[in-house]
């Protein structure tokens, strides 16, 4: 995964709350055996109508948003299924950060493993961001902070280990493999065996 150290981008805003993983990528696109190329399927049924025509009113279909790397979404983004295809599709499309007031647990875990930063902000900041699509934001991942256009700096919470991996582009499998001696001891000494 690519390291994410800082990010400067305008936002695109999807104000709906509880955007579930079926909206992010519908199940019929999950028959792939690759992680690549899912950007076309991102928000597919919101971007296109049933005849395949572009829904002009959907914010991602505004050409001015095409290079936005920050998505601002309504409360509780990513609820529903465990499909990692959701962050794969968001990253493939070009997003590197999603801002909401809350993320579903599995989505947040999956996002962080793919270089996609989930940023939780307070309700007031969120309201402002929702009301100002296209706002230019700066994100400093090492400092866990977000800079608003008026210069205000807002710190956001992030797991220290996830931040470490994200800023260095480290995948966590290597770290787990280093624990193999402890795992072997655990397997031998536990009081019952599965």
């Amino acid at each position: 995964m690519d390291a994410l150290i800082s990010l400067q981008s305008r936002t695109v805003v999807l104000p709906t709350r509880d955007i579930d993983t079926d909206q992010i990528i519908p199940a019929r696109f999950l028959t792939t055996t690759s992680r690549e190329g899912l950007g076309d399927a991102l928000f597919h049924d919101l971007r296109y109508d049933q005849d395949g025509a572009v829904r002009a009113e959907f914010p991602l279909n505004d050409p001015a948003t095409r290079d936005c790397e920050i998505l601002v979404a309504g409360n509780n983004f990513g609820c529903g299924s465990s499909r990692e295809h959701a962050p794969w599709a968001l990253v493939d499309y070009g997003f590197r950060a999603v801002i909401s007031t809350e993320f579903a647990d599995i989505f947040r875990n999956n996002a962080l493993k793919n270089g996609l930063l989930p940023i939780v902000v307070d309700a007031d900041t969120h309201d402002w961001l929702i009301a100002h699509p296209g706002a230019e934001l700066g994100i400093n991942v090492e400092a866990s902070s977000l800079e608003l256009p008026d210069g205000r700096i807002i710190e956001y919470p992030i797991d220290a280990f996830a931040r470490y991996c994200l800023t260095r582009g480290i995948d966590q499998l290597g770290y787990l493999q280093q624990q193999s001696a402890a795992v072997a001891t655990f397997e031998e000494t536990r009081s019952w065996k599965p």
Binding site: E84, N110, K113, D171, Q172, L173, L176, Q177
Partner: peptide, 18 residues
């Protein structure tokens, strides 16, 4: 509990999760 595909790889390779 449910996990993503990267974590499926972690469990296949190490039988553990972070």
């Amino acid at each position: 509990f449910g996990i993503g595909t990267t974590e499926v790889g972690h469990v296949l390779a190490t039988q553990c999760l972070l």
